[in-house]
């Protein structure tokens, strides 16, 4: 579902990602771990075509990012749900309008949109907030709106950039359960976080660790070759 091979990226002279390779199959759940500045957000941005592919290869949901013209970027984004670190919600629009946005873009009939929006808002505990403008919500509620917007389209691939960063531990845990449920329906989830606690509480998920743009640890076969913390070349099949 996601295939990345020898991906490198730099901003000017500063390399941000170096020779990153991994692949995720349908239904995989991977924590993308690493400290701030490790390249997690850059990797995710490349995967939803917000940044161009500079070196290497990448394909998401069968779409080759290296050969993706600008006119077809929306097609990719319709396959991918993204939860952004800064939420990217519309503060002057209601919760309902924000969550319905990707469905309207896809041209769904209003009755289908309403049904799906209601289902996802109930799942995320937002049903009482549905008519409020997003600008009036707390940070945690805004984050849930962002997650609901990503969930509502049933994407094949879900990319989440620190989606629980603004939530209290209990809510974060509940949301993780939703992500897991989502995975159970066959979605591939790449979940960027630097919360060790969150990863510990979900031992069933794979983990890929990024440090200074390189994969330094990975615990599933599709993670490819990487350099570990001691500078050794390691194949992920060896399992850490």
């Amino acid at each position: 579902m996601i295939r990345v091979r020898r991906l490198s990226h730099s901003f000017g002279a500063d390399p941000v990602l170096k020779d990153v390779s991994f692949s995720l199959e349908k239904g995989d759940f991977v924590f993308l771990a690493g400290p701030s500045g490790a390249g997690k957000t850059t990797l995710l941005r490349i995967l939803y075509a917000a940044l161009p592919l500079q070196t290497g290869e990448a394909a998401v949901a069968g779409i080759n990012l290296g050969r993706l013209p600008a006119s077809r970027v929306p097609l990719l984004r319709r396959q991918v749900g993204v939860v952004f670190q800064d939420f990217k919600i519309l503060p002057r629009r209601s919760v309902e309008q924000n969550i319905a946005l990707p469905l309207e873009i896809r041209g769904l009939a209003p009755r289908h949109i309403e049904r799906r929006v209601m289902a996802v808002t109930r799942a995320l505990g937002l049903q009482d907030r549905i008519r409020l403008k997003c600008g009036e919500l707390s940070g945690g509620e805004q984050q849930r709106v962002a997650i609901a917007r990503a969930f509502v389209v049933n994407p094949k691939v879900l990319l989440a950039d620190e989606p629980t960063g603004n939530l209290d531990p209990e809510l974060a845990y509940r949301l993780m359960e939703l992500f897991k449920q989502f995975q159970a329906y066959g979605a591939t989830v790449l979940f960027a976080t630097h919360s060790e606690d969150l990863m510990r509480r979900h031992p069933g998920a794979y983990t890929m660790r990024l440090e200074k743009g390189r994969i330094t640890a990975a615990d599933w076969p599709g993670a490819g070759v990487f350099i570990d913390g001691a500078g050794r070349t390691v194949h992920s099949r060896q399992r850490q």
């Binding site: 097609l75 990719l76 984004r77 319709r78 990217k88 919600i89």
Partner: peptide
């Protein structure tokens, strides 16, 4: 611009 960016990220075509 923020709104336009969100629409683009949600998969909207330019005409939309």
């Amino acid at each position: 611009e923020h709104e336009i960016e969100i629409l683009q990220l949600a998969g909207a075509y330019n005409w939309y």
